[in-house]
Every structure is written in C-alpha cells, then in structure tokens.
C-alpha cells in the first residue's frame, strides 16, 4: 500500500511540476495589474489584447513563422533523400552519415549559434536572417530524417521493385509509390520541425540583429525593457498554439507513432 501511495504522490508532483508553470503563465496573462506577477491582481483580457498591438511582436512573429515553415520545408527537402538512402541502400560510412545528420540534436544550440555567428555572419558578412534560416534548417534536419526514416522502414521495399518491373523508373517510383505512402510521416516531421523551430531559443539568441529577432528572443528582449504581463499573455497564446497543433496531429495522424 505504501509503495502505491508513494507512486501516486510522485505522479502528482511530476504533473504539478510539468503543468504548474503553464498554469502560472496563464494566470499571470489574465492579470489586471500593471506588472508581471503571480498570483494575478484581478482578472482582465487587456494584456492579451495588447500582445496584438506591439509592433515588434508582429514582426518577430512573422519571422518565426517564416523560419518555422520554410526552415522545415528545406530540412525535408534535404532530409527525405537522406532518410531514403539510409533505409534502402547499404551506404559506405552509413553510420557516420547518420551521426553527422543527428549532430545538431546533440551539439548544444548555444554552440551552434555562436559558431554560425563567428564563422558565417561576421567573416563572410552573411545576413543574420540567412544565418537564422541555415541554423533552423540544420536544427530541424535530424528530426526530419528520423521521423521520415521511421515511416520508410514500415514501407515494404518490394513494392518499389514491383513498380520498376511494371515499367517505372527508380525516380518516378519514388514520387509515385514511395512519397504517397510516407505522406503522414512527412506531415508528422513537418509538425515536429515547425514546433521545434518556433520554440527555438539558444541558436537564435546569437543570431539576432537590428529588426531581426525571432519571437522567443523578442519576448526576452521585451521583458528586459517592459515588465508587463503581455509577455505572459503571448507565452500563453504560443503554448495554446503548440498544444493545438500537436493535439490535432495526434488526432489525425497518430503523431506519437513517429516521435
């Protein structure tokens, strides 16, 4: 009985720990006071409304959306062929390739950001926006490869041979047979990549310039200047956005199969 009680207590503590910050942020967002505080002073939607009026939020939201969408698309364009090659052919140095591809997950983002700043942006005079795009693409690539690999491994390779014998070229087989059958894996990879990119802080921290800031970085910057609850409101909105995307993905794709 005691062990059972203990496990319930542990479980409750874990849940509080996981969900607690979210509750606090939502409560702070709905505060009627003038500064970020918990417990909130009064109840009001004014900070939620203010989020939409802050000019820099709009710009950084647009940048974050752009990076999340096009960074993920670029990562898929690069990652799907890698995943295909790794699953269908015995590549020389296959293991090395896999390790290199997953490096961005393992190497701390702060190092990736610093490296890109020091060796790309500064010496080559590459724009911060371009560097951000490269960084986000590289960061999403491992997820794209991994998720797409999982669905390729579930797809029998003899259907590709069947298509070839029926007169299809290897390339046409990839587009007509392989791609339609790994659609949901690709969509899952897209969602995972999107969310990862959108919530990315450490890499983007180094790659900010005048007027070029991703939304999370902009939030940090805003908080340093204006300590009002609109940051909490924005955080709550973003959390809801992420949750609903993942919820819908789970509902329609069985997202957790891929991640």
């Amino acid at each position: 009985m005691t062990s059972r009680l203990l496990s319930y207590v542990t479980l409750t503590l874990v849940l509080i720990f996981l969900l607690g910050p979210f509750v606090i942020i939502v409560a702070a967002a709905l505060s009627g006071g003038e500064t970020l505080a918990f417990p909130p002073q009064g109840l009001s939607f004014k900070w939620v409304m203010k989020v939409f009026e802050v000019e820099s939020f709009r710009a950084s939201f647009a940048l974050s959306m752009f990076l999340a969408i096009f960074g993920t698309l670029a990562a898929l364009v690069l990652g799907v062929p890698v995943a295909y090659a790794a699953s269908r052919y015995r590549l020389p140095f296959g293991e090395t390739i896999r390790t290199i591809v997953s490096a961005p997950i393992i190497v701390p983002g702060i190092i990736v950001g610093l490296a890109l700043l020091r060796y790309l942006v500064i010496p080559l005079d590459v724009g911060v926006g371009v560097a951000l795009f490269i960084a986000h693409t590289a960061l999403i690539l491992p997820y794209a490869v991994r998720v797409v690999s999982a669905s390729l491994d579930n797809l029998r390779s003899d259907i590709e041979e069947a298509a070839v014998i029926l007169g299809s070229t290897r390339v046409a087989t990839f587009f007509r047979i392989v791609l339609p059958n790994i659609q949901s894996g690709i969509l899952a990879a897209f969602i995972l990549g999107f969310v990862t990119s959108f919530n990315q802080v450490p890499v983007s921290l180094f790659l900010s310039g005048p007027g070029v800031r991703t939304l999370p970085i902009d939030m940090i910057w805003y908080m340093e200047i204006t300590y009002d609850p609109s940051v909490a409101a924005l955080a709550a909105l973003l959390a809801f956005l992420s949750i609903s995307i993942v919820f819908l993905a789970e509902r329609f794709l069985g997202f957790s199969r891929y991640v």
Binding site: D158, I165, G167, T169
Partner: peptide, 16 residues
C-alpha cells in the same frame, strides 16, 4: 528491369 517486358508476382504480392 523497367524495359524488359517481364512480369513478376511477388510472394508478398507487393500491391501499392
């Protein structure tokens, strides 16, 4: 293989 005019019925059927 795609220009041989040879048919193959796979053991696993390999339907799309």
């Amino acid at each position: 293989a795609n220009r041989r005019h040879v048919g193959l019925v796979f053991q696993s059927y390999a339907l799309f």
